[in-house]
């Protein structure tokens, strides 16, 4: 349903999205996970035809986002990062307008708007002027706007941001219930959101896809291990032996690098870095690098889980 091939998007010299490729099958829910400025919004804007890619191709429902953008636009519902609301309009008028420009036939418009309001649970504010709604309601009007023409593909940029915890649960359930009939891509920087709603996760960091997996696979790896890269100036055999002896280390393997570089896996609960460092110092080996693997799922995962535990906005 969605096929992205080596898409890059530059702003000046900066690549917001750098050579990403992935596929989404019909009826799937896929989560874009990544920290701030990872390129999630930019990738979505390319898919929705809002921004042209600098290079690469993307198709949605079999249509090229650049060459056949009008066909793509008919088939997508898009909730941008900031809900695109005309503040002076009433909710119902606004949704009627969106239905009109999305090509819903006049006879079906009323019903389409009713259904969208129903799904987004905004029936009680249908006559209110949008600018006087609370943030959460505005977000839901934005969601209704994306649903109003019953599109094949839904692209939702942080759909649960601005909602209170109860509404978050409701919206997540709504999104789950839409899968099957719709193909959905949603972005978030909250990991549990992904594991709760999505079948598959694409993790983006600094414009590149660093991992792509099912939620189960992701969780398994997360439970599994933490990884270190250690780079020292010393004989490989000795390094493997000494580090292997550190408590908690489950695996040591050689990887490429300028010096003797090894890749260390350990039990998740054990912090091995101080002990590894001690071993290196005790042996008098010059250390060039000791870092927790940047691009591993776990790192992004941990980093992001901690964000979820922070105070709710």
């Amino acid at each position: 349903m969605i096929d992205v091939q080596q898409v890059s998007r530059y702003f000046g010299d900066v690549a917001a999205v750098n050579d990403i490729s992935f596929k989404v099958e019909k009826g799937e829910i896929v989560g874009f996970l990544g920290p701030n400025a990872a390129g999630k919004t930019t990738a979505m804007r390319v898919l929705t035809t809002y921004l042209p890619a600098t290079s690469g191709t993307a198709t949605v429902a079999g249509f090229d986002v650049h060459e056949q953008s009008m066909e793509v636009r008919k088939r997508i519902g898009y909730l941008p990062e900031n809900p695109p609301l005309y503040q002076d309009m009433r909710v119902r008028d606004y949704l009627e307008f969106v239905a009109k420009i999305k090509g819903v036939a006049p006879a079906d418009r009323h019903k389409a708007v009713d259904e969208a309001m129903d799904k987004a649970a905004i029936g009680d504010v249908s006559g209110r002027v949008i600018k006087y709604l609370s943030k959460g309601y505005k977000q839901r009007v934005g969601l209704a706007q994306a649903l109003v023409h019953n599109p094949e593909v839904l692209i939702l940029d942080e759909p649960t941001v601005r909602l209170d915890p109860n509404q978050i649960i409701e919206v997540r359930q709504l999104i789950k219930s839409l899968a099957g009939n719709h193909t959905i891509i949603l972005s978030t920087h909250i990991l549990p959101e992904v594991s709760m709603t999505c079948e598959r996760v694409v993790i983006i960091n600094k414009g590149v896809i660093v991992a792509e997996d099912t939620t189960e696979g992701l969780t398994k790896k997360h439970a599994g291990a933490t990884r270190l890269t250690v780079s020292v100036d010393a004989p490989l055999q000795a390094v493997m032996e000494k580090i292997g002896a550190v408590r908690g280390v489950t695996k040591v393997e050689k990887t490429s690098g300028d010096h003797t570089t090894v890749f260390v896996e350990s039990d998740k609960e054990v912090e091995i870095r101080p002990e590894v460092a001690q071993v290196l110092v005790a042996n008098g080996w010059p250390l060039y690098e000791l870092k927790a693997e940047d691009v591993s799922l776990e790192d992004v995962f941990l980093h992001l889980t901690t964000q979820e535990e922070g105070p709710v906005e």
Binding site: R45, T48, Y50, P84, I101
Partner: peptide
């Protein structure tokens, strides 16, 4: 300013 341009330019309107 309000971001509605993003709706306009992702709708099948030339």
């Amino acid at each position: 300013r309000t971001g509605t341009i993003e709706l306009l330019m992702t709708s099948p309107v030339t």
